[in-house]
Amino acid sequence: GTLHLNGVTVKVPSLEKAIKAAKKFAKKYNLEVQVHGNTVHVH
């Protein structure tokens, strides 16, 4: 999967790991997580 954090793109081995990391990051910075196919966006 691919993880987008505020314009930074990170390749992640699995989508589940990407979503987990995204949710952790989003919670910390009070951001929103959106999943588009195998790409996770945090903004």
Rank of each mutant, 00 (worst) to 15 (best):
L31C: 10
T9A: 10
K24M: 10
T9N: 06
K23V: 11
T9K: 09
A21R: 09
K28R: 09
K23P: 00
V35T: 03
K28L: 08
K20M: 10
H36R: 09
Q34S: 13
A21M: 14
L31D: 00
G1V: 15
I19K: 01
Y29I: 03
A22K: 01
G1S: 08
T9P: 07
V35M: 05
V40F: 03
V42P: 02
T9H: 09
V35I: 11
G1W: 15
G7D: 04
L5P: 02
V12W: 12
V40D: 01
T2N: 08
L3G: 02
V42Y: 07
A22W: 12
V10H: 07
N30E: 04
K28P: 00
E32T: 14
E16I: 13
S14Q: 05
V8R: 12
K17F: 12
H41Q: 12
L31Q: 03
I19H: 01
E16R: 13
L5K: 03
V12F: 15
L31Y: 05
A26T: 01
G7S: 06
F25L: 10
Y29A: 02
T39E: 13
K28G: 01
V12I: 08
A21K: 09
Y29N: 03
H43V: 12
P13W: 12
A18S: 03
L31G: 03
F25Y: 11
V35K: 03
I19C: 06
V12H: 06
K11P: 08
Y29M: 03
L3E: 01
K17Q: 11
H43N: 07
A26K: 04
K24N: 07
A22F: 13
V35N: 01
H4K: 09
I19D: 00
K17D: 11
A21H: 05
K27D: 04
K17S: 10
K28T: 03
N30T: 05
N30V: 07
P13C: 15
K20A: 13
K23F: 10
G37L: 06
H43C: 15
K24H: 08
V40P: 02
H4Q: 08
K23D: 01
I19Q: 01
G37V: 07
L5T: 04
H43T: 12
A22T: 03
L31K: 02
S14A: 05
K28D: 02
G37K: 04
E32K: 09
V33P: 01
L15F: 06
K28C: 14
T2R: 11
H4W: 13
K24A: 12
K17W: 14
L15S: 01
F25K: 01
A18M: 09
H41N: 08
K20H: 07
T2K: 10
V42H: 03
L5G: 03
S14C: 12
P13D: 12
V10N: 03
V40H: 03
F25C: 11
V40G: 02
H36I: 15
K27W: 05
Y29R: 02
A22E: 00
K23I: 14
K24W: 13
G37S: 05
K23C: 15
K11A: 09
V42L: 13
V35S: 01
K28N: 04
K20F: 06
L5W: 15
V33H: 01
V12P: 03
V12T: 06
Y29P: 00
N30I: 06
K24L: 10
S14H: 08
V42F: 13
Q34M: 12
A26G: 04
H4L: 11
G1T: 10
V40L: 06
K23N: 06
E32Y: 11
K27C: 11
L3C: 10
V12G: 02
S14K: 04
L3V: 08
K27I: 06
